[in-house]
């Protein structure tokens, strides 16, 4: 496998690994937005009272690993995944799979990942990469967020596969075991299932901190933060939101642009032009997220510190809420078949 492997760059690591693994398994039509949409990757959640790295815990996506599981289930692809207790077993099993000509996806932590620039090495454990071969003591690595392939020695790979902390990978690896050729019909069904799951996640999740209502919750919090925490701490909080939203691996605008691209592809499969209009709404919402990131960076760097600046950010969040609520309501009213 290692001789004719071609690298594929993606905006988000998990999508990239899925896309590449499925393409290798014979699903040539697979693209990153399609994998993201079928797996219902889009989400919003602001977990109250809980701090992550000393900032608000906000996520723009579903739980790590779920995109892969859902995409494969919808397309009737059988996968195997395994976690390990001992590093030695994990390495032996990986070597065994590689010798069987499997291409294997691995969950790793980025803190000790050698080819990442030092600025990006936080304790973040939900990064994914592909191992496609072994030469001597070096593993051949294809990391979807990079523009080329790379290598890691076996010690380096073991270290990142057994990173510790929140979402510790415990040597997690996964690969495609069995797949049947899929018809256009099945792809269409999978797309519709993905859209339905995302709409119900975003519109009907109970409580007021998840889905589109979660954006309103964040908006209310932002308004209060200056009084409650002071400008400096709030700046850190907003900085954290920017990183969750824009940092490498989101395709920009908190996954909204990837989702818009997915709806555009979906409209071709479903032959439905309404989807294109809804796709435009997500582009608009993604642009607003990005515009808001610029405003947040202003507060972060002390360029704007008045309460009115905070209110401005909160107002844009309300606007985003309205756009996304309308978009998802329209999506659920489409009655796709």
């Amino acid at each position: 496998m290692k001789d004719n492997f071609t690298h594929l760059q993606a905006a988000h690591c998990e999508n990239g690994v899925i896309t590449k693994l499925l393409r290798l398994a014979g699903h040539d039509y697979m693209t990153e937005p399609l994998a993201f949409g079928i797996g219902s990757g889009l989400f919003y959640l602001h977990i109250p009272f809980f701090k992550f790295n000393g900032g608000p815990a906000i996520t723009f996506r579903t739980a790590p690993g779920s995109i892969f599981k859902r995409t494969c289930k919808s397309l009737r692809i059988e996968i195997a995944s395994k976690r390990f207790r001992s590093e030695q077993n994990a390495e032996e099993y990986l070597d065994f799979l590689l010798s069987q000509n499997h291409v294997v996806g691995c969950q790793v932590g980025v803190f000790n990942l050698k080819y990442f620039p030092p600025e990006y090495r936080f304790h973040f454990n939900a990064h994914n990469l592909i191992v496609y071969g072994k030469a001597d003591n070096t593993y051949l690595i294809s990391d979807p967020i990079m523009d080329r392939v790379t290598t890691l020695s076996s010690e380096e790979l073991n270290k990142v596969r057994f990173a510790k902390g929140f979402l510790a990978p415990r040597g997690h690896l996964y690969y495609v075991t069995k797949t049947i050729p899929v018809s256009e019909e099945l792809i269409r069904k999978a797309i519709i299932k993905g859209i339905k799951r995302t709409t119900s996640d975003m519109l009907h999740i109970p409580g007021n901190v998840g889905g589109v209502r979660g954006i309103l919750y964040t908006s209310r919090q932002v308004r209060k933060w200056r009084e409650k925490l002071g400008v400096r701490t709030t700046g850190h909080y907003l900085g954290q939101i920017i990183r969750m939203q824009e940092e490498i691996g989101t395709g920009g605008g908190g996954f909204r642009f990837i989702y818009a691209a997915f709806l555009e592809e979906a409209s071709k499969y479903c032959k439905n032009d309404e989807l294109l209009k809804i796709s435009d709404m997500f582009t608009q919402s993604g642009d607003l997220w990005r515009e808001n990131a610029v405003n947040m960076a202003g507060i972060l760097r002390g360029r704007s510190t008045e309460q009115s600046d905070f209110d401005h950010i909160a107002d844009i969040l309300i606007e985003i809420h309205q756009i996304e609520k309308k978009a998802f309501t329209d999506l659920s009213n489409l009655r796709l078949k």
Binding site: Y120, Q240, E246, F257, A297, L300, R301
Partner: peptide, 28 residues
């Protein structure tokens, strides 16, 4: 990055970075 091209459909383009992101990162 996923962007709209001149035909109004989605396309990918490579970016070296964005200063807003860099500010958030250096703040962290």
């Amino acid at each position: 990055c996923y962007v709209k091209n001149s035909n109004g459909s989605y396309d990918t383009v490579k970016s070296t970075g964005w200063k807003v992101k860099n500010e958030a990162l250096s703040d962290a």
